[in-house]
């Protein structure tokens, strides 16, 4: 099948990473990843791959369940947001130094 631009087949990902397709479907249902359906085949956008790989590592390497992963992803978003805010505030603070 002709590869779709910027899309990675879920089947390919699952077979190369030894991950069950049901796990990916569950992630999709919980909204942790977004799956695109094209001509009855399931794909993930290449931009979402780092997030999916991170989730796979958390689940398979660290034995963290889905609820734990949801919490971690939420907190990581908050950490990233706070880090950006700190950077902006530091830059602003330099005005007064």
């Amino acid at each position: 099948m002709k590869p779709k631009r910027n899309l990675i087949s879920i089947d390919d990902f699952c077979s190369s990473c030894n991950v069950e397709t049901s796990f990916i479907n569950t992630l999709n249902q919980t909204g942790l990843i977004e799956i695109t359906s094209v001509e009855e085949n399931l794909y993930i956008n290449i931009d979402h791959m780092p997030q999916l790989e991170k989730i796979v590592r958390l689940h398979y390497e660290l034995d963290i369940n889905l609820e734990g992963i949801e919490t971690i992803i939420h907190l990581l978003h908050r950490i990233n947001g706070l880090q950006d805010e700190i950077t902006q505030l530091r830059n602003r603070l330099e005005l007064y130094e």
């Binding site: 991170k54 590592r57 958390l58 660290l62 971690i72 990581l76």
Partner: peptide
């Protein structure tokens, strides 16, 4: 290992 990896894993400690 699991206990420490959960604490220090790079995915959980960005940058």
């Amino acid at each position: 290992y699991r206990k420490l990896a959960r604490k220090y894993h790079p995915d959980l400690n960005p940058n």
